[in-house]
Design a protein around this nucleic acid. Structure first.
Lengths: 125, 125
DNA sequence: TGCGCATATGAACAATTGCTCATATATTAA
DNA sequence: TTAATATATGAGCAATTGTTCATATGCGCA
């Protein structure tokens, strides 16, 4: 019954089996975590937030965020690989913009969670 | 005009100012990144995915994911602090469940992005 | 009380990550 | 071609993170 990983006696086997059958494939969940990892960095969140408002080149973003073009370029690479941004070349300048409608929804749901009123643990003061 | 961070000549100041005004507060974006960071780990994504289906105790989750109760407990702590799960004690056993409706939306939007057909870079083969 | 079990937590270590710096590539202009 | 500029990329380093292991806490039962 129990494998090597859990020595507990109180294991609800029927629940575990039911859940195991319903859960998405392991690979999908891995990819999902990889996607959220991309959103899980302040610099990248700022870049995405900026691109909601306008298409921008690397230098614009660098100046906006008071960071070096190099670090911005590194992060844009990550965003590109996750297919969250697309780019358009105009001479030497590369303009970036958002590539996906899901992003806005994910972003806004996240903001709603952040802005939600806290539970009683703060109400007690 | 240009500060110390970007030495580019082609900086679209008007765009930058417009975007700067529209962007959410720095603190909000920081918190948002922190939230997504919580989603950005395979173990935690699996736990969340499991709790979509049923309330479970620490040992159930450990057995389900073939991991130690200790590591699950550590991750549940992170999920608790982000207010993504809530817990309910029943004797020695602690049952965890999801604490928020936004989570499902964020999760599903993420899955939609993952499952989206790829762009031409794969079509060329 | 004292034991056993479910969960929580702290320290430590390996692995990952984001930035900096140096350098490479690409495009325009002289 | 050569120089200048915008962007990209690789190596290296400091900081962060997830797991393991040891130990602590909390609850039920004898």
């Amino acid at each position: 019954m129990s494998d090597e990983f859990c020595s507990c006696d109180v294991v609800h086997e029927n629940v575990i089996e039911m859940v195991r059958k319903k859960m998405p494939q392991e690979e999908k969940l891995y990819d999902l975590a990889e996607l959220f990892k991309v959103f899980g960095d302040t610099t990248r969140v700022k870049i995405i937030s900026a691109l909601f408002e306008a298409e921008m080149c690397v230098c614009d973003i660098a100046e906006l965020l008071h960071m070096t073009p190099s670090s911005i370029s590194h992060q844009l690479r990550v965003l590109r690989q996750a297919r969250l941004v697309k780019h358009r070349k105009e001479g030497k300048v590369v303009f970036y913009s958002l590539d996906d409608e899901h992003i806005k929804n994910i972003f806004n749901q996240g903001l709603e969670h952040i802005l939600e009123p806290r539970g009683f643990e703060y109400a007690i003061s």
